[in-house]
Structure formats: C-alpha cells, structure tokens
Design a protein around this nucleic acid. Structure first.
Lengths: 353, 353
DNA sequence: GATTAGCACTCATGCTGATCGAGTGCTAAT
DNA sequence: ATTAGCACTCGATCAGCATGAGTGCTAATC
C-alpha cells in the first residue's frame, strides 16, 4: 500500500491544484508546490500510470494533466474532508433566518442567495411539492361578485391559494357548504375511507352546488399539480462567468445557462438526486449531456423529519468539494432547524382553528 | 429635399441591412442589394456625409459602416412602419389567454413566454405594484394555532396573501374584530378621512388585540412594499446567444445577463419607461451603461384604464424595430382586453361579498 | 528494483511577415 | 453632380519560426 499511497498523494495534489488554477498540472509543479519528496521524473511515471487507470487526462501531448470525473469521484469518496466553517457564518445565517417567519418562499430564496454568496456558484433550490404534502384544510372566500379564493393549508403549514372563477355566483351559505364538503373530501382521502361519508354528503348538495364544486375541483387539481418547473428557484446564474473554462468558451457558457433555465428539468434532477443526505453528481454522472462539464451538489431540507425540498449548487466539475459540501451541509441543517422551529412545532399542538 | 431624401434612403438601407446581417455595410452592398440607381462611389460620398452627421460609424478605417444609436432613433421616429401581424398570431394569443382566468401571475409569465417565442429576444414583464392599487378588503384567517393568514384584495381584483405570526393566539371573535378594524382603516385611507372612525374603533379593542394589530400591520406594510425586484419576470434570457455580436463576445454577453438579473433595476427601468404607449430606448439612451449595446421596447398593460404593469423586450440595438413594436402593441392590446374582460368587469357591478 | 538525471520530442502559444480582399477616400473624367 | 478608377488602409488569414512547458524514454545511480 505504500507505493499506491504515493500514487494517490500525487493524484490528490493534482486535484487540489487543478481546482485552484483550472490549468493542466505538470509534474514539476507537483514537485515544487507539494513537497512529496520525489523527483519530477518519478512523478511523471506515476502520472502515466494514473492516466492509464483513468484518473487523469491530457488535453494534448505536451500539456500537463487534468483530473477526470473518476478522479473527482475518488477524491470525493475517499479524501474529502468536511471543513469546520467559521462559526460566524453559521451565526450570520441563523441571524438571517430569524427575520423570516412564515414567508416560506422568501426563506428559500434567501437561502439560495446566501449559498451563492458563500460559494460563488449558481445556487438552485426547490420549493416543496404541495401535492406530496397532506392537505389539512381548504377554505373558500369571495373575492368579488364572480370570483372565489381557494386557500389550501397543508399539515406541514404550507399555504397556497388560487382564484376560482365560477359560472354562477354562490351565496354565503352555499360557499360554506362547499367548504365543508371540500374538507370532508380532504379528510376522506387522508383516512383512505373514500366513499362512505363522501357520497352521502354529495347528495345533500343542490345541482347548482354540485356544478360549482366541479369547477372548484378543477382548480384544486391544478393547484396541486403545478408544474415542477415553477418550484425551482435559481440564484447567481451569472457566477459561471467567473470560471475561465466557461468564460473563454461562449458555447459552453450558453449551454450551461440554457440547461439551467429548463426549470422543470433542473427541479426534477435536484429533487431526485437529493433523496437523502448530501449528494454529488460529477460531470458525466449527470444524465444530462449538457451538464457533463458540471458538478451538482445538493441536499434536502426537512420539515418534521420529512424531506420537502432541496437546495444545491451547480458549477464546473472542479468545484471545491470540501468547502461546498460543508456549506451545503451547514445551510440545510440551519434551514431544517429553522423550519421546524418556526412552523414544524405548530403541528404537535395544532388544534386547527 | 430631393438630395437629402436620397441620403436617407441610403441610411435606411444600411439600417435594414445591418439589422439583418450584423455586419458592417459597405457601399457596394448597398449598390447591389438595394437598387437606388446610384453608383457605389456616390453612395460612398453620401455615407461619408452621414458619418459626419453622426448617423454612421466605422469600426475601422477599411470597414463598412454601422448605424449609430442616432440612426436607429431616426429610423424609429421617421421610417418605422407598423406591421400587420398575421392574424393567426393574434388568434393564437387570444386562444392562449382564454385558458387563464384569475391566475394573474401565470398570465403575465405566459405573455412573456409568447413574446420571447415571437421575437427571439429576452422578454421582461412587471407584475402590478400592489402598493399603487387600492385596497378593497382584507381578511384574516387562522392557519394553525399560532399563525394567521392575511389576504388582501384590491379593487382591481388582485389578490395577495401573507402569513402573520402572532405572539399571542387570537380566538375567533378577536380575529373577526381585527378584520373589521383593518377594513375600517382601508376605507379610511381611501376616503382620506383618517382619524374619526379610526381612533374611535381603536378604543374598542382590548390591549391584547391592539398588540396583535400592531403585528399584523407590520405584515401589511411588508406586503404592500414588496421590493420591486420580485415583481419582475424575465423569459428567454439566453436568446441573446443567438446574436453573433454577443455570442462572439463573452464579456458582452456576461454584462447583459448580469444586468438582466438585477431585477429591481430592470423592473424600475421598464416601469418608468413605459408610462404610456410603446416606448423605445436605444443603446446609450438607457441610463445604465451596461445596457448601452441594447435596446428596450416596452409598453404598459392596463386594467380599467389604469396602467398596472409593463411588458417589454431587451435585445441588441439592431432589433427589428418594426416587427417588435408591432408584436408588443398587439400583445399589450390583447392582454389589456383579456384582463378587462376577465377581472376588470367585476368592478362595475362588484358588490363585494 | 526503484529512483532520477538527462535528453529528445511534442505541441500549444505567440510573434512576424506576407498576402488577400473588402472597403474607403480622392481625383480626374464625364 | 456623378462616376470610373486607383491608391490606400486595415482586419483577417496563414505560413513560418522561436519559445517553453511538459512529456516519455533511456541510462546511470543508489
């Protein structure tokens, strides 16, 4: 293992150096900058081996070496160290969060902003998919003569609303009856007791009311099935221009920006990725060809133990994995904490209204 | 005027040609492509004049000419023809709109999408600034034990909501009283009769309720003063890469994208620009240096005659002004029509609830 | 047998100079 | 006033060359 350790010391140095400089790393650079106590000739031999093993690549014959996706993968799996973030960062974040109660979307956006600021990378975040949550209650109220506002409240304390346009104008009592019926449905679905109470209650509605109900249902359905794309939030998309490999290659930059703007795709990607803990996709590991020069690091935030959304970053494959993973870890932790403090608690002692 | 007409025929041709090709236009190109019945030598002389007059510029001594901002301005003011859009476009848009009732934000986003699709340019749109609208009514309702949902409905039929976190939990009757009081305030402000009823009603609230009211007010204030940035929606920001002058100049592209993402700035810009009718800002006419290579065309959409937001496009100065202006005109018209049909009407015969 | 010094070789990069051609400005002829 | 003609300018392209970073291989060394 002695020998092979040395090999991977070299690989490690190359990865670190390339992450920092974005320039192909040569054997002499390693000899001088990282004192491994070995001559450049030996390093060269090792590098040739590493290349054969698939960890390094040469852009052209007389250039230094560049780490492959496989090298980053090894680095991440074996050598990455989680960093201790300066405590003031955590304090800052906590301080920031303390200003946001309830404004869920704002909170997530702010988190993405912070993520960008800390990492100099594009940050993405998904808001909770409401259709995955459990509806606690629905309300109807008049907006004006022919429109009604539908408010849906989930058990997790997320609130969504939409307007419903009705072909007929319900009076107050009708609206109340409809509301009651809606909630009956919600409870039914929850308890898997569909049928019984439901049909009985339906009979008690007048034909007019049944028609309105139908219109309302279509809005509920629409609200619950909002497209994934609109759940995505991205910040700092222009950060990519800070990285020479993108700045000097407009096509690459354009491809990056274009894929980022396919919001549904990105949302799906990041949600699926981040099923638990921090997840890292390096280069080609992303199914999307357009992302084959990029790495994505993401994690989920939770409410009452349940993952409800993700935050993450997208950048070149030569991200500073150690640092970024630490940041994401810290942020999801703080975010989860804050969420559970500010709305999670409501559930335990929640007595409805 | 005979002579000078010819001069401007040439200028016109150059502008048209440059809009199409993005290449400096030479005298021979004009001679051949646009049959003005004049030799290239004469055209050259005229071009020299036009350059002296500030309408043309030469990137370098042996290159063709490029129109200046001043040339585009003249073009727009004097020679632009409004085009008759293919009627199926209008029909498509109307068809599209007919699917959107009430979901105001969706409607605006969709409009921006269409705008991008029709013009191949970045489209931006601002949602109404709720603080400029008149509040018709506010409602409070419980979300769970310690949170309350505040719903604000404007006279224009726009609905906004926010959560309020209260240090103390109001019971149903208290909430009703607070709601009543809020609406009293709204009406007071409307009628400019601040004072009278207001203070009298305040006295009737218990100290607890007064404290809650204070907390609610802070949310109302926050809701009404949401930052301009969040009112901006942009679509097709990567369209810019379709234009060689940006695609071949990463710095330019980066600058463009960066300024586009300063949402508050853009929102302000486009709102202020579009006070009435279609407005066009060409290159340096934009106060923002970052936009000195860009033109912006925008217009307002209206609800019950009142401008409540704008839509527009941002692109290189060599936009096809004729076409783009026509598109924007058509879209704002359709949008305004649709809005007034779908929510505007509610006002006239609006009897509240 | 592993290490390393040394050297030939490769190839991107940057510089120079030559050529090309698009386009101009000016002049003299019409 | 117009235009043909021509000299001139200057970016773009390309070949040629030197430079230097970096390699791979070989032979000497430990």
């Amino acid at each position: 293992m002695d020998r092979s350790d040395r090999k991977f010391d070299i690989l490690y140095s190359i990865v670190r150096d390339y992450i920092k400089t974005a320039e192909p790393v040569g054997s002499r650079t390693i000899e001088k900058k990282y004192n491994i106590g070995i001559s450049s000739a030996t390093i060269r031999n090792e590098m040739a081996d590493l290349e054969e093993m698939g960890f390094l690549m040469q852009p052209h014959a007389s250039a230094g070496r560049v780490p492959s996706d496989k090298a980053y993968r090894l680095y991440v799996d074996r050598y990455m160290k989680s960093m201790n973030l300066d405590s003031y960062i955590k304090a800052d974040v906590r301080e920031l969060y303390s200003q946001y109660f309830g404004e869920f979307n704002e909170l997530i956006k702010k988190t993405a902003e912070v993520l960008t600021k800390l990492t100099n990378l594009t940050a993405i975040a998904t808001l909770p998919d409401i259709s995955e949550l459990n509806i606690k209650e629905m309300r109807l109220m008049h907006i004006d003569s022919d429109r009604v506002l539908l408010v849906v409240i989930t058990k997790e304390g997320i609130v969504k609303n939409a307007e419903v346009r009705l072909s007929q104008i319900p009076v107050r009592e009708q609206l109340d009856r409809l509301t009651e019926f809606l909630n009956l449905c919600a409870r039914d679905i929850q308890n898997d007791t569909t049928g019984a109470t439901f049909t009985k209650a339906l009979d008690q509605l007048s034909p007019d009311e049944q028609r309105m109900l139908k219109e309302i249902f279509s809005t509920v359905k629409h609200l619950l099935s909002e497209d994934t794309g609109s759940r995505l939030y991205a910040d700092g998309v222009t950060e990519i221009f800070k990285y020479p490999e993108f700045r000097n290659d407009t096509d690459k930059a354009a491809r990056f920006l274009e894929v980022l703007h396919r919001r549904d795709l990105m949302a799906q990607l990041i949600d699926e990725m981040a099923t638990d803990g921090v997840r890292i996709r390096i280069g080609e590991e992303n199914e999307l060809d357009e992302l084959s020069d990029c790495s994505i690091i993401s994690a989920t935030y939770r409410l009452n133990g349940k993952p409800i959304g993700s935050i993450g970053i997208v950048g070149p494959t030569r991200i500073d994995y150690d640092y970024c993973v630490s940041v994401i870890n810290a942020l999801t932790e703080e975010l989860t904490n804050h969420l559970n403090e500010s709305i999670g608690g409501s559930l335990d002692n929640g007595k409805g209204e």
